[in-house]
């Protein structure tokens, strides 16, 4: 039962990363693409990490997983912000 839950979590995590990737290809302009990549990717990684922490079932892993989740949710919007800001400034210059 446990392993099934883990594999479902892993599967859905990959699905969300795939969705981000499809969004990157399908959307028309940069900002829309950024919407897709920031949200879906970090959620996908979150699901993958949840699956991992259930699978290994140890404190050592769980602490690291919490750390990584915090880190990703802290940095992903900032990365998007920096790309968007540099694009915005470049547009202003032209």
């Amino acid at each position: 039962m446990n392993i099934l839950l883990v594999s479902i979590l892993l599967f859905f995590g990959s699905v969300f990363i795939l969705i981000a990737s499809i969004g990157l290809v399908r959307f028309k302009d940069l900002y829309s693409r950024m919407h897709a990549t920031t949200k879906a990717t970090s959620f996908g990684i979150l699901l993958l990490l949840l699956g991992i922490s259930i699978y290994f079932n140890s404190w050592n892993v769980a602490i690291k997983v919490v750390l990584i989740i915090n880190l990703i949710y802290f940095t992903a919007p900032l990365a998007a912000h920096s790309i968007a800001k540099s694009y915005e400034d470049k547009k202003d210059k032209e």
């Binding site: 900002y31 919407h35 920031t38 970090s42 992903a76 919007p77 968007a84 800001k85």
Partner: peptide, 15 residues
């Protein structure tokens, strides 16, 4: 706030 705006549906903080 800026991080949260980026994570909520359909909005992205730019500047």
């Amino acid at each position: 706030l800026s991080n949260l705006i980026s994570m909520t549906p359909g909005t992205l903080s730019i500047d």
